[in-house]
Amino acid sequence: MNNYTNRRPPVPGGPAIPGYGGDHGNGGAGGAKNLRWRFGCHLRRLDLATFNARTLRTDEKILEQEEEIDKLRWNIIGLSEVRREGEDTVILESGNLFYHREGDHLSQGGVEFIVHKSLVKNVVKIGSVSTRVAYLILRITKRYSLKIIQVYAPTSAHPDEEVEEINVDISRAMHSSKTHYTVLTSTQN
């Protein structure tokens, strides 16, 4: 072989560029693919979940929900079909943040977020664009932010117009605020 074929450009995270990219020049090609290092030391892992709650109309149901999720490893949970009145953001006794938005009808629909108490200070903004689409913006570092969009999506049995309306709402949520990363979570009814 000639010398030309053995030469390759330096790879971020590779030994030729120590301290840049994924793992401090560990010889791997982690580079930009390994976002955990770039997020900063305080947020090594973000556990997201989504769940169709069926109903969280009463405060007792919320307490039951918290008891169940304490058995899991989670940071943010997007919930659908919460069936609560109005729109509100509260800090629960546990220290977790609870946001909900009422559905079209009191007995059905609605979206919600539960944010673990360890991340409550990182929440920049929380809101909704409709009764089926809510979003949360989380500060990851001083420079990076993450938007999580929770969707209570209609099934294929719903009319096409309703599906198109949800797509418009998702687009509005995606463009509502500029963030570095966006995650879309969804449940169906």
Rank of each mutant, 00 (worst) to 15 (best):
S156V: 05
A49Y: 10
T155V: 03
Y152Q: 05
I76L: 04
I77V: 11
Q150E: 04
W74Y: 15
G25V: 08
N96D: 15
H24R: 15
T55V: 01
E164P: 01
T58D: 05
I77D: 02
K125Y: 05
R36E: 10
L48T: 10
T50S: 13
I91V: 15
Y99N: 08
V111S: 05
V151S: 02
E102K: 03
V90E: 13
D160T: 14
Y181Q: 01
R143K: 15
S130K: 10
A173T: 06
L92K: 03
K61M: 10
R44F: 08
K33P: 02
A32D: 11
I140L: 15
L46R: 08
M174S: 11
S171R: 14
R101M: 00
K71P: 01
H42S: 15
R7P: 02
V123R: 09
A32S: 15
S128F: 01
P15K: 12
V82P: 00
T50D: 07
I170L: 05
G86I: 09
E85D: 11
I69D: 07
L146R: 12
M174V: 09
R57T: 01
E68W: 03
Y144G: 00
A173V: 01
K121A: 07
M1V: 08
D70S: 13
T185G: 03
Q188A: 06
K142N: 13
I148K: 03
E67Q: 11
G22N: 14
G21M: 12
H180E: 07
I140A: 03
T58N: 05
G21S: 04
T141N: 14
D104S: 08
Y152C: 04
L138K: 02
R143W: 14
G40A: 08
D160R: 12
T141P: 00
T155R: 04
W37L: 07
I77N: 06
Q108F: 10
M174N: 12
S176Y: 03
L119F: 04
S186V: 01
R84L: 03
N2W: 08
G78I: 10
S186L: 00
F39K: 04
G95N: 11
N96A: 13
H105L: 15
I140C: 05
P15N: 12
P18S: 07
T182M: 09
R83C: 05
V183D: 02
G14D: 08
G25Q: 03
Q108M: 13
E161L: 11
E81Y: 06
H105I: 15
S80Y: 06
I114F: 07
L43P: 06
E60F: 10
Y4D: 13
I166K: 04
V124L: 15
S171Q: 13
I76V: 15
P154I: 10
F39R: 15
F98T: 02
I166W: 00
I140N: 02
H24M: 13
N75H: 15
M174H: 09
Q188V: 10
R84T: 09
P9V: 03
K71Y: 00
Y20D: 07
E162V: 08
L106V: 10
Q108I: 09
G103F: 00
Y4K: 14
N34R: 12
A16N: 08
H116W: 00
E161P: 01
S186W: 04
L63K: 15
G31L: 08
S171M: 13
G95E: 07
Q150N: 08
V133Y: 05
R8A: 09
Q150T: 03
L146N: 14
D88E: 15
R73E: 14
V115Q: 12
S107M: 13
H42M: 07
